[in-house]
Amino acid sequence: MKAACLSLIVAALALSACNHSAPQAVAPVAKTPAPAASAPKKAALFVPPPESAIPSDDFGKQVALGRQIFIDPGRYAKAYVGNALSCENCHLDAGRLAHSAPLWGAYPMYPAYRSKTHDVSTFAARLQGCFNYSMNGKAPPQGDAVLVALESYAYWMSKGEPIGVAPPGHGYPKLPKPAIAPDYTRGEAVFKRDCALCHGDDGQGQQAAGRTVFPPLWGTQSFNWGAGMEQVNNAAGFIKANMPLGRGNTLSDQDAWDVAYFMDAHERPQDPRYTGSIPATRAAFHDTPESLYGATVNGQLLGRGVAARP
């Protein structure tokens, strides 16, 4: 009996030793790698419908007329135009091209408060301003057939966009401040190298068959001192994205700033809001370093105007 008990004790001790031996190495469980961080996707540019999609009904006739006015206002809105420009000189591809203030980028953003007018403007009122300033003419009255057609064209082009949300490409790009201040002499060199071929050595553009092919950039037939393009930052953003025509984004930012300064440092028709005093007009409507109205460049005071407003 004692021998049997002793055998059981020995067996138990042996089993205990086995159970407390050094643990065996266990292969680590492979972890699923975390997905690589991807660059944020850029929002897709809105694609307006093609001209061929303009409907053939009565509304479509207004849309088609609006497009004709936009391309050739000197013919289709002659009573309201005071220079040789067309709308698509600043809003390329009949107002369709992104980053050149396309119509489809503007229409969904109105009505809106504008610091320029110090009130809430409708889209029609915004169009009136284009005639007053960019076209150096006079505004069609509210409800005029010209405004109705242009607004119909913009509405048709913008269908499907959210209201009140600025879509990508809706205006002109906002360039960062230049490394060095814009300069007239450097800008003149850029103009001669990259711009004069189309706009002429004198900046007066080119015409063919009675129509302006390349717009005048200053002088009697260009936009007046009240237009948005007279602000150097606006001109620089437009030039950077779109010029030379067909070769946008090939100029450096500095070149775009310099040539925009050169363009805006030339005289043009008077601001229709002119108060009779250049300093007072600057204080009221051009109180920004981006405007050269009332500034002296190359010994010349800018803002005197070059032609009476029609």
Rank of each mutant, 00 (worst) to 15 (best):
residue 170 H to W: 15
residue 268 R to I: 01
residue 195 C to F: 06
residue 189 A to L: 11
residue 184 Y to V: 06
residue 197 L to H: 15
residue 218 W to H: 08
residue 252 S to V: 06
residue 207 Q to S: 14
residue 202 D to F: 12
residue 284 A to Y: 09
residue 283 A to E: 14
residue 263 M to L: 11
residue 216 P to V: 00
residue 271 D to C: 05
residue 267 E to D: 05
residue 215 P to E: 09
residue 257 W to Q: 11
residue 208 A to Y: 08
residue 200 G to Q: 00
residue 210 G to Y: 12
residue 282 R to Y: 02
residue 257 W to I: 08
residue 172 Y to W: 13
residue 234 N to G: 07
residue 219 G to Q: 04
residue 230 E to C: 12
residue 249 N to G: 02
residue 207 Q to T: 15
residue 219 G to K: 05
residue 214 F to C: 04
residue 179 A to I: 15
residue 257 W to S: 01
residue 246 G to Y: 09
residue 288 T to K: 08
residue 168 P to Q: 05
residue 272 P to L: 12
residue 168 P to S: 00
residue 199 H to S: 06
residue 264 D to P: 03
residue 264 D to W: 02
residue 242 N to T: 05
residue 303 G to F: 15
residue 210 G to R: 10
residue 251 L to H: 04
residue 190 V to C: 07
residue 185 T to F: 14
residue 229 M to P: 00
residue 205 G to E: 03
residue 212 T to V: 12
residue 289 P to W: 13
residue 217 L to F: 13
residue 266 H to V: 00
residue 168 P to A: 01
residue 301 L to Y: 10
residue 243 M to A: 12
residue 207 Q to N: 12
residue 244 P to E: 09
residue 296 T to I: 13
residue 201 D to I: 10
residue 171 G to Y: 14
residue 276 G to W: 12
residue 265 A to D: 05
residue 171 G to N: 13
residue 219 G to L: 02
residue 199 H to E: 01
residue 177 K to Q: 15
residue 234 N to K: 09
residue 178 P to I: 04
residue 216 P to D: 07
residue 271 D to P: 03
residue 245 L to P: 09
residue 289 P to I: 01
residue 248 G to F: 10
residue 257 W to K: 06
residue 254 Q to I: 08
residue 236 A to W: 13
residue 190 V to A: 05
residue 223 F to W: 15
residue 293 Y to N: 02
residue 281 T to G: 00
residue 251 L to Y: 11
residue 200 G to M: 02
residue 236 A to Y: 12
residue 177 K to E: 12
residue 246 G to W: 14
residue 196 A to D: 05
residue 285 F to P: 01
residue 207 Q to W: 09
residue 186 R to W: 09
residue 215 P to A: 12
residue 213 V to F: 03
residue 230 E to G: 08
residue 284 A to R: 10
residue 214 F to I: 04
residue 301 L to M: 06
residue 229 M to Y: 03
residue 185 T to A: 15
residue 255 D to E: 15
residue 223 F to N: 02
residue 233 N to F: 14
residue 252 S to I: 06
residue 299 G to A: 04
residue 252 S to L: 12
residue 208 A to W: 02
residue 280 A to L: 04
residue 297 V to R: 03
residue 266 H to E: 01
residue 226 G to M: 03
residue 219 G to E: 00
residue 185 T to I: 13
residue 240 K to F: 15
residue 249 N to T: 11
residue 241 A to P: 08
residue 239 I to Y: 02
residue 241 A to L: 11
residue 301 L to C: 07
residue 240 K to D: 13
residue 245 L to S: 10
residue 189 A to W: 13
residue 284 A to S: 10
residue 253 D to M: 07
residue 179 A to C: 07
residue 224 N to C: 05
residue 259 V to G: 02
residue 189 A to K: 10
residue 267 E to P: 01
residue 300 Q to Y: 15
residue 263 M to C: 13
residue 287 D to H: 12
residue 225 W to Y: 09
residue 249 N to P: 03
residue 237 G to F: 11
residue 251 L to N: 00
residue 280 A to P: 06
residue 213 V to E: 13
residue 253 D to A: 14
residue 230 E to M: 07
